[in-house]
Amino acid sequence: MSAAEDLVRRLRGTVLPAVATPMDAAGVVDFGALRGYAERIAGEPIGGVAVWAHTGRGLYLSEDDRRRVLAVWREAVGGPVVAGVGVPRAAGAVNLGEAVDATVGMAVRAAEGGADAVMVYPLAQLDGDDDAAVELHERVAAASGLPVVGFFLHGEAGGYPYPPWLVSRLLALPVAVGIKLATLDRAMDCQDAIRAARSSGRLVITGEDRMFGPSLMWGADSALVGIAAAQVPLTVAVLEAWRAGDHGRFVRASARLDRFAEATFLAPIEGYVQRMLWAAVWEGLIPEEAAHDPYGPGLPAVERRTVVDCLESLAKEAQEAEEANDTEDSEEAGTEDDGPARS
Rank of each mutant, 00 (worst) to 15 (best):
L234T: 00
M188P: 01
N95P: 03
G48S: 03
A107D: 04
L184H: 13
E320L: 15
S330M: 11
T206H: 05
G145P: 08
D189I: 07
T103R: 12
G47I: 02
A230C: 14
A3W: 01
T21E: 05
G178D: 03
G92I: 12
G248K: 09
D293L: 08
V177L: 05
A50I: 15
G79V: 07
L239W: 13
T327V: 10
P161G: 03
K316H: 00
R252M: 05
A91V: 13
D129R: 14
G32H: 02
A315Q: 14
E208S: 11
L224Q: 07
P297Y: 05
L277Q: 11
P88L: 01
G159Y: 01
P22R: 14
A50F: 13
W73Y: 10
M276K: 01
W52L: 15
A157G: 04
H292D: 14
S330T: 11
E262H: 10
T264M: 02
D30Y: 13
V100H: 00
G296N: 05
A280T: 11
R12V: 07
L7Q: 05
A117N: 04
D326Y: 00
E135M: 03
I205P: 00
V232G: 02
D129F: 08
R35F: 06
A107S: 11
M23Q: 14
G219W: 09
L126W: 08
A321I: 00
G128S: 06
W73A: 04
C310W: 15
E98K: 11
D116N: 12
P268Q: 02
G114P: 02
S313T: 14
V167E: 12
D129E: 10
L224C: 11
V148M: 06
R10Y: 06
D329V: 02
D127N: 14
